[in-house]
Amino acid sequence: MEKLLLLHGALGCHTNFNELKTALSEHYDVYCLDFYGHGSEAFSTEPFKIEGFSEQVFNWLEENNLDAVSIFGYSMGGYVALHLAAKHPEKVKRIFTLATKFDWNEASAEKETKLLDPDKIEAKVPMFANELSERHGEHLWKNVLRKTAEMMLALGQQKALSEEDLSQIEIPVLVSVGDRDPMVSLEETASVRKQLKNAALLVLPNTVHPLEKIPVARLVFECRQFFG
């Protein structure tokens, strides 16, 4: 069967894909991993960087003797997948990105990092704080938030993927976005589709940003349509 790797988003980990992985396993050999500093890989002194996560995926593929895989990348995971394809094209067959933010600049980075204050989250959204604590560890989840904020601010200064990088990716890519996503715009997603050589655009109706709010059956359908 086709080998399919699922890459999680910022603040996430592989357990975000539990239901989707189970459903997709009927049709694909499905793999997941945690980016360093997240979930089971929670402790790390390294700064969070798209380039670092991309190299981690490359090394993971090498260690697991996987020549090439297709990738479903949610949010940040889609950005990492495209970076991997730009730097190590032999390792990636197809990429399906969902809710991936591409338009990083100082203003967008500042807007997003305002939502990542651990003390405010703990005070105003305790259920989310508890979820992050269970996901990354009681003493580490705040560190994950801070490092993610630092990464976003760095992306606001310099994107990890240039237009030239995107234009060199030749594999089939499906970039998708929800029509009600407050973080990722249709315009930025469509712009990246135009920069890629072999890409299509999918707009999911009545869909917001969080992965858990998207029906698993719909994601499975779209994956099967694209990956075959």
Rank of each mutant, 00 (worst) to 15 (best):
F58H: 06
L166P: 14
P118N: 03
A123C: 09
E188H: 11
E90N: 03
L5V: 01
V203M: 10
L155D: 04
N64L: 02
R180Q: 15
N59E: 04
Q168R: 13
P118W: 04
S185C: 09
N16W: 12
N198D: 08
V175Y: 06
G39N: 05
L115S: 13
T97I: 03
G178A: 03
L204N: 12
G12I: 01
I169G: 05
F48L: 08
R146I: 01
F17V: 01
L219S: 11
E110P: 15
M183L: 11
F58D: 00
A99H: 13
G228S: 12
G77C: 07
V173D: 03
L6H: 06
L6C: 01
A107Q: 15
L20Q: 13
G39T: 02
A160E: 09
Y28R: 10
W141K: 09
D179A: 03
L145G: 06
P47H: 06
Y74H: 06
S25Q: 13
M151W: 07
G73E: 00
I50L: 00
G39M: 02
A23D: 14
L66W: 09
V80E: 01
V175D: 06
E90H: 05
W141A: 01
P182Y: 03
E164T: 05
A149P: 15
V175P: 12
L153Q: 14
L204H: 10
A200T: 15
E112F: 15
A154M: 07
G52L: 00
G12A: 03
K142P: 11
L24S: 14
E63P: 03
N65M: 04
A86V: 09
G137I: 04
E170Q: 12
A99V: 09
E188Y: 10
F221Q: 14
F43W: 11
E55R: 13
K197L: 06
A129F: 09
S54G: 13
K87L: 02
F221H: 14
E188G: 08
K147M: 06
W60F: 02
K101C: 02
E187M: 08
K101G: 07
S54L: 02
T45Y: 10
R224N: 15
L115G: 10
R193W: 00
L24N: 15
R180P: 09
E112N: 13
S191C: 14
G73N: 01
V177Q: 05
T113N: 11
V208W: 07
L132H: 09
A86R: 08
N105L: 08
A149Q: 12
S25F: 07
